[in-house]
């Protein structure tokens, strides 16, 4: 049985919940008191993930950390049609590239949100600036894809790259990052929300769905 060590307000945990729901995989959610309890920095949790970060997914003996790695594991095991991580070499390379973008550059938007919502001592101006820089790159990329006739970050159908980038982009306003200047991102967010099996989390506005 899959167990997800989960925090409802974590966008990284939400990536995994979203993927599990889309793939229709049963799992047990283990709530971790990330805030105010800081349970992810305590010995029991550090035994699972010495980095002290959520999410962690376990599947019997297997213990995985890092949302992007977990997405890759889940689709490798449960996506029989291989559409979420396509086999074509060039597409696969692009999927991996934009999945990494979701775990790296986009995380500036997560830091801004942690600052604004939970008072984390980050340099908020710097984080917002970095997030805007990442959003600009993403917006340009999506527009280029659309011009080529594609709706997704890589390839011709939704992949783990879309799931890895969606949460913290859609939650950006929690961290004071407006998306007014990114029309292509807005169109793409709505398309992700229409993927069968999509679920929301607090802060993701469900009534924006078309």
């Amino acid at each position: 049985m899959i167990k997800l060590y989960d925090y409802i307000l974590s966008g990284s945990c939400y990536k995994v919940r979203l993927m599990l729901n889309i793939l229709n995989v049963e799992y047990e959610a283990v709530p971790v008191d990330f805030y105010p309890g800081l349970e992810h920095k305590k010995p029991d949790f550090l035994a699972l993930n010495p980095l002290g970060q959520l999410p962690v997914l376990t599947d019997d003996e297997l213990i995985l950390r890092d949302a992007q790695s977990i997405l890759l594991y889940l689709v490798s095991k449960y996506d029989a049609a291989n559409t979420w991580f396509p086999e074509d070499a060039a597409t696969r390379g692009q999927v991996a590239m934009w999945t990494a973008f979701g775990g790296d550059e986009i995380m500036a938007a997560s830091a801004a949100r942690l600052h604004d919502v939970l008072n984390y001592p980050f340099d908020i101006d710097q984080q917002r600036k970095s997030a805007h820089a990442a959003f600009l790159i993403l917006d340009d990329h999506i527009a280029e894809q659309e011009i080529k006739g594609f709706d997704w970050l890589a390839g011709t159908s939704p992949t783990i790259a879309d799931i890895a980038c969606f949460p913290y982009v859609s939650l950006s306003e929690d961290g004071g990052i407006s998306r007014e200047e990114y029309p292509a991102i807005e169109r793409w967010l709505r398309r992700v929300m229409d993927v069968p099996g999509f679920i929301d989390m607090p802060g993701v506005l469900q009534h924006w769905r078309s």
Binding site: Y7, I8, L9, P31, D33, Y35, P36, G37, V117, E173, D174, M201, P202, G203, L205
Partner: peptide, 13 residues
């Protein structure tokens, strides 16, 4: 806690 935090985040927007 997670239940209540989720509700508050929706109100925050």
């Amino acid at each position: 806690i997670q239940f209540q935090q989720g509700i508050l985040m929706q109100d925050r927007i």
